[in-house]
Design a protein around this nucleic acid. Structure first.
Lengths: 248, 248
DNA sequence: GTCTATAACACGATAGAC
DNA sequence: GTCTATCGTGTTATAGAC
């Protein structure tokens, strides 16, 4: 909630409480209770008190394991990334069509997100603030972000996609950014089962792929350079390193 | 903050307290105090108690005039729209270049936003939830949205922009959506004085305008139809009418 | 009917004892 | 690692003043 009250004291504990197996278990119990409450009442209505009570722990204890209510969502997100990787390998083996590969990747992700739709709408919200730890652009999310980009790179590589070689290195990140935009649309999409998002994906790919083909034309050099600059500009949203604030 | 607690009781009072001039004045005082506090401490740190104290009124009174803390931001936004309209008329008289017209419109808006940058970052946040009253897609914002779209329409009309006539009617809204995307980027833009946003605007226009030219080619029919469908899909985010919830 | 104030509520988050 | 007690916040209920 309070977007501008950052938790700088706790320096984002890298692997909190991986120590004892008891801790692991407690964390798991709390997370499970949280997801249950989220599913039942929705993210907004499920209070930390509810979650703690249902998990059989105190509120303070829940905050020992999770820095904030939002962080509980992240957990689910991280886990879904593993799924996607396996899935993508299979798909790449099955087809060389770039469109098919990318669509499958995206559709599968949307399916996963849909199971806990309201949760991810909240996560999208956090994404708007690039220094927020849960933003896809934050330094804390670097690893997750790079994994996802690499996954797209796998889908591009060895596919039938026709595109200028000068542009090729920039494609994974451009497509990752595109994928973020799609998720943003999805979180706003009011159509039944987010059918519109799926259509949008298909449609924009159908529009983009021929345009990629144009980049092979001999006169496209200037155009391509502009696309690369576009890539650089968009990438500037990414916060690679933890911004070194004045040390206390 | 609590994105999912909607205020359905108070049915969005159309013109609260426009009656007496005293009310007008009190509202103005509160708004001024609010902006002052926002500027000094930032939106997140400025509390309603601060604002009320500084304005010399009670918290309850502030809530009499503003439905929520966020609504105070909206006020500034609405006012900036008036500015833009005048500005646009002048620019349209000065040049026929579509690029110049649109850039001027956008740059001017960015200048205005920059004065209260943090405020609008918060507003952008609200925008992510399309049923939120402050979202640019909400039913409540219909009038503001239509004004802004019409403004862009004025910039297109009589300009030197080359584009298929089948697409032309859809341009204002497409460009309005584009403008939203730009504002989104702006709210994330960490570069000094948001220089990157300005460059992005120029660059993407330079990329788009030749593409618009392509829509005039005889074989572009299919392509154009797809763009129109794209327009329709994107427009589905707009909530035209207040969703009729079960009356109590 | 129009405006204002006080007090309280609910929730996210934290401090500090054990 | 866990709990209790408490804080700070947005927001609301409600009573009363003009």
């Amino acid at each position: 909630m309070n977007m501008f009250k950052f938790r700088v004291q706790k320096p984002m504990p890298p692997e909190i409480a991986q120590k004892t197996s008891k801790a692991q278990k407690t964390r798991e119990i709390i997370l499970k209770a949280a997801l249950e409450q989220f599913g039942k009442k929705g993210y907004g209505r499920a209070t930390m008190r509810d979650i703690a009570r249902e998990a059989g722990v105190s509120v303070g204890n829940a905050y020992y394991y999770f820095q904030s209510k939002e962080e509980m969502i992240l957990e689910v997100f991280v886990r879904s990334q593993r799924d996607a990787e396996i899935r993508n390998q299979e798909t790449c083996r099955r087809t060389r069509s770039f469109k098919a590969r990318f669509l499958d990747l995206q559709f599968h992700r949307l399916d996963l997100l849909s199971e806990q739709r309201e949760l991810f709408v909240v996560l999208t919200q956090a994404g708007i603030h690039p220094d927020h730890p849960l933003s896809p652009f934050s330094a804390e999310m670097a690893s997750l972000r790079n994994d996802a980009t690499a996954l797209i790179g796998d889908a591009v590589e060895g596919s039938d996609l026709k595109v200028s070689s000068s542009l090729r290195p920039y494609l994974p990140r451009l497509l990752w950014l595109f994928n973020l935009a799609i998720i943003l649309f999805w979180s706003l999409d009011g159509s039944a089962e987010q059918k519109n998002t799926r259509r949008l994906l298909e449609l924009s790919l159908s529009l983009m792929i021929p345009l990629f083909g144009l980049t092979l034309l001999p006169l496209a050099g200037m155009f391509n350079r502009m696309v690369i600059e576009l890539h650089d500009l968009l990438s500037s949203m990414i916060r690679e390193k933890p911004t070194p604030t004045h040390s206390p």
